[in-house]
Amino acid sequence: MTFEFFTNSSFIGAVLFILFAPLIGGIVMGIDRKITARMQGRVGPPVLQPIYDILKLFEKENMVVYESQNFWILSYLIFIVVTGVLFFAGSDILLVIFALTLAHVFLILGAYSTGSPYAHVGAERELIQLMAVEPMIIIAAVGLYQVTNSFDTAGIIQSTFAPVIVLPGIFLGMVYILTMKLRKSPFDLSTSHHAHQELVKGLTTEFSGSTLGMTEIAHLYELVFLLGFLFLFFGTAAPLIGIAVILIVYFLEVFVDNATSRVKWQFALKSCWIVTAVLGVLNLLALYLI
């Protein structure tokens, strides 16, 4: 299954992603916030609230510590989009992962560039998170390759049977990682959706107005990308089950977000690596036994 970047289908995938991911991501996040509120016995914001928030941020004054910080954040946004585009266009999944890492490094550099203590600690923590999740994602990519014999997402998704059947460990590991990627409790270390964090706003402390808006948009893109990544485990072999499972997984994430306190970074790092080793690496090794 070779993938051609400039074919129609991949082009359509990319364009659809660019146009609709923020909307879909916004609605998913809105529902997320609504469910969270209900779990807390509150009414919660309107479903479109995340989108209002972003639109509002672009109405605000752009306040910076140094002008260069916006450059890093713009790069972050662009490379998150590139990640998604590559992914939905059916490109090599390792490249997608590297692009994602690159994007995050830009975000981190943006935080560093402000020279603020809170952003600094946030950046360090984000790096720890990055380090914690990276192994699992790479292992997931390799696992998918082992099953489908393709590194291209286009190839993976057309697998004749759902990879999740032989990759249950890796799938669970990815779900675990997802909590961290979505910055949900217990892993909302570097920055948090709600304010009461020891780091103020961590990573994003010094961003305001459109800069913050860009990080939020990037976050929505990333959300859609991550959900898409999970979908790879089902592929076109079991699309409906895939969507159902992803919905359940997302609900679970919201639930876990509500049922746990924030853990410390030591635990976050250790647990992610252990989960990766136990679920991911063993699953990979087990592939040989089957």
Binding site: G41, D188, H196, S261, R262
Partner: peptide, 16 residues
């Protein structure tokens, strides 16, 4: 206290 350790739901329920 719950909030200080990032347990938002517990915060909300305590205050409820």
């Amino acid at each position: 206290f719950a909030d200080s350790m990032g347990f938002e739901n517990l915060f909300m329920n305590s205050w409820r």
